[in-house]
Amino acid sequence: MAEKEKERIKASEIDPKFKYEIAKMHGGEKLMRCFQCGTCTSDCPVARFSETYRPRQIIRMTQLGLKDRVLNSDTLWLCASCFTCTDRCPQDVEVASVIRVLRNLAAERGCIPQVFKEQAASILASGYAYKIPDLRIKKRESVGLPPLPRGNPESIRKTLCNVGFAKHIEKKGE
């Protein structure tokens, strides 16, 4: 009973402008075309093994303006970005890209899983998404591989210095 109560949508939760906000963003443009056929969910590899992850539902909740529910939900981060849904949607909704747009907004609020945060911080610090172990770097030579590209973290940070979000991650990654 209590669960039911929690699931019940209240009018005060609805942000009627949310869908327009999403549709203005790169990849979110076709959100409104969704007619809830369910192709995305039925073909989604993650939905097959998850009891909670349903791309169609995320799309509908977004259309309805359930902003906080969508952005604060952990399930948003379950998408494997395989793009099967995008390729198969009969209405040409870029489902995976809508989910990405939502993730970007969730990340801005600080709702972002540790793995994603760590990879972003690592890229800003070294140019690589993971810390490449010294052992691996040394081993390259002995197996006849050329040295690992040093990247250029300095130059990367320069290109990202005007993106507000980069600062946000650097602070968090410290």
């Binding site: 993730r103 972002i112 979000f165």
Partner: peptide
């Protein structure tokens, strides 16, 4: 790896 965090 940055796409989920910031498309830009």
């Amino acid at each position: 790896p940055l796409d989920p965090v910031s498309h830009e």
